[in-house]
Design a protein around this nucleic acid. Structure first.
Length: 572
RNA sequence: CGGGGCGUAGCGCAGUUUGGUAGCGCGCUUGGUUCGGGACCAAGAGGCCGGAGGUUCAAAUCCUCUCGCCCCGACCA
């Protein structure tokens, strides 16, 4: 491809809206352009990268007997009513009406569509298992799109769905996906961490996420520094040692400071872990106390899972009515008729401090076992950096930011039950199909790769997903030799199916070098009169400083070897 | 949805406090000189100052209302 005729609108100045490195470079290198909030145009160079990523995904999905299909984006309301997701997706779903005033939506995901297809076509266990996948645009009206392609309202997802006869089959499909995904990310040059996660709106029994560690990430994950424990902080557990405070009896302590754990801890000169944070929630119009240790926060994702119904934090008036004190001085101690959920890490704690239900007073010497009557001990806190690992002894947790690249769900029968997707098993009985769903964010891979492979000058594409393999840079085209030799090399590369971008523009050398480094094509060939005087041109990898002097006749051979060497790093 | 910031030439910005000819850098066009890390000279083109209303002799500037974008938070596969 000739750069003089190729559309790569690079920009020298950093766009003001971009914060994350991937966002900045996607715009500067002319890969994408914004159209609206969370909606982008993919320009030729960006599309080439996306296509490469998709090709790797296809190869690995086909390898596990996945079958590619393509489902509609525009769908009717009825299917979504069957699973109640017309409502539960809420504002995140783009909804519209057709000319006959029928409710439609742009599919945010495709469980309902795939289940509908399956229930019409799958009758017998003989037709199972199946893995169906697609590379399809999804629409989600995100409340806050960010970081260019990190969170978009229109994006490409590879989503696949497994249909199995039983739990064992699901387990197998799930494992196959995990392995395929590992290979996909490895081939794209990314290292990932697989973490346990919350299944949220998708439902189902278990879910794993493939995470790429990055400060640009929106998710936080907890990793053990000793064993292999890894979980999204939304679900990460910990195992804190029970606190044994010094006071045995409950006593009232005057605490004339704002009722935060911080302030009272300072006043009493006690570390925060000696406190019980008592939070009052309202759910089903009933007060619910949630108790956690003073140095930790309530994890509302976990709370949602425990309560199984809607809830919200109580407002100051409600708190006062229920306890007689302002928020900050409250606790369930000596209160009647309140549901109490206590974090499991508070079990057996003694000598604790918490609100006395009287303004500017706290109780000291509280014993969980003696003074609190919980409905249930539950895992309800967000793990902090340095907390003990819940899985091994001696390990502690690190909290890292990460980009969620993929999410795998064991859906079980959630969709097949509600949508009546049944098959007849070998014993003649009718059973619901056991399902799994497995998504990959295609553009997020692109962003993660840029996040990992760049320097101050621009992108350094791994050869496996690079938009071109070779960037050929003739300097000073007014020199006949430079022009002729670079044209010859260009033709040879093309004949050998080595995708090449030749910078045939009438620009100064520095300009061409800067563009080449910004775009980040992995192999650069420089043809200039200076090195031609020694009978050579120069070949270098974008990611290295080292230049190789190579005779024009040997360029093809040299480049072939380079490509082969590079490819090894991103092999399956 | 809450908080903050911003909409002026294709891009990045100044001008708004204190109303009075719309500017700068990059990019673009033409000509010339240059040519191994985003050159230089000269001459040009290009803007209803996001939109609508209002105040005023006069509005990019003041007032009201709107639309959009970005960041933080909430929310979220």
């Amino acid at each position: 491809m000739r750069l003089s005729r190729y559309f790569i609108p690079t920009v020298k100045e950093t766009p003001k809206e971009a914060q994350e490195i991937s966002h900045i470079l996607l715009l500067k290198a002319g890969l994408i352009k914004p159209l609206m909030s969370g909606i982008y145009e993919y320009l030729p160079l960006g599309l080439k990268v996306i296509t490469k990523i998709q090709q790797i995904i296809r190869e690995e999905m086909n390898q596990i007997n996945g079958q590619e299909l393509l489902l509609p984006i525009l769908t009717g309301r009825e299917l979504w009513e069957e699973t109640n997701r017309w409502n539960t997706f809420g504002n995140e779903m783009f909804k519209l009406k057709d000319r006959n005033d029928r409710d439609m939506c742009l599919a945010p995901t495709h469980e309902e569509i795939i289940t509908d297809l399956a229930r019409r076509e799958i009758q017998s266990y003989r037709q199972l298992p199946q893995i169906w996948y697609q590379l399809q645009t999804k629409f989600r009206d995100e409340p806050r799109p960010r970081g260019a392609v990190l969170r978009m309202r229109q994006f490409i997802m590879k989503d696949s769905y497994s249909l199995d006869r039983n739990e064992e089959g699901l387990e197998e499909s799930f494992q196959m996906h995990r392995e395929a995904y590992s290979r996909i990310f490895r081939r794209c040059g990314l290292d990932t961490v697989v973490v346990g996660a919350s299944s949220g709106l998708m439902g189902g029994s278990a879910s794993d996420e493939f995470m790429f560690l990055s400060e640009s990430g929106e998710d936080s994950i907890a990793l053990c520094n000793t064993c292999d424990y890894a979980a999204n902080v939304e679900v990460a557990a910990t195992r804190l040692k029970p606190i044994q405070g010094d006071k045995e009896e409950i006593t009232e302590v005057h605490t004339p400071v704002p009722g935060t754990v911080e302030a009272v801890a300072n006043l009493l000169a006690k570390p925060k872990e000696f406190f019980i944070k008592s939070l009052l929630y309202i759910g089903n119009n009933e007060p619910i106390f949630v108790l956690v240790r003073g140095d930790h926060e309530v994890n509302e994702t976990k709370l949602a899972g425990i309560l199984g119904h809607q809830f919200r934090i109580a407002n100051p008036d409600e708190a006062k009515n229920i306890t007689g004190a302002d928020i900050g001085y409250i606790s369930p101690i000596r209160l009647e008729n309140v549901e109490i959920y206590v974090d499991v890490n508070l079990k057996d704690c003694k000598g604790m401090i918490t609100g006395a239900n009287k303004n500017e007073y706290h109780f000291a010497g509280v014993s969980i076992e003696r003074d609190i009557n919980p409905k249930q001990f539950v895992d309800i806190i967000t793990a902090n950096e340095g907390d003990p690992c819940p899985q091994c002894s001696g390990g502690s947790l690190c909290i890292k930011k990460a980009i969620e690249l993929a999410h795998l769900f064991k859906l079980g029968t959630k969709y097949s039950q509600s949508m009546k997707c049944f098959f007849t098993d070998s014993d003649g009985t009718e059973k619901p199909v056991i399902m799994g769903s497995y998504g990959i964010g295609v553009e997020r891979i692109m962003a993660a790769v840029i996040d990992k492979y760049h320097d101050s000058a621009g992108i350094q594409w791994p050869i496996s997903i690079a938009p071109f393999l070779v960037h050929l840079i003739p300097l000073d085209l007014t020199f006949e030799d430079v022009k002729n030799i670079s044209e010859r090399i260009y033709e040879e590369l093309s004949e050998n199916d080595i995708s090449t971008l030749i910078d045939d523009r009438d620009e100064r050398p520095g300009f061409k070098f800067k563009d080449a480094d910004l775009i980040g094509i992995p192999i650069q060939i420089i043809v200039g009169k200076r090195s031609l005087q020694n009978g050579c041109c120069e070949i270098k990898l974008r990611k290295e400083d080292r230049k190789h002097s190579v005779s024009p006749n040997e360029v093809i051979l040299f480049v072939r070897n380079l490509i082969e060497e590079e490819r090894k790093q991103y092999a399956r």
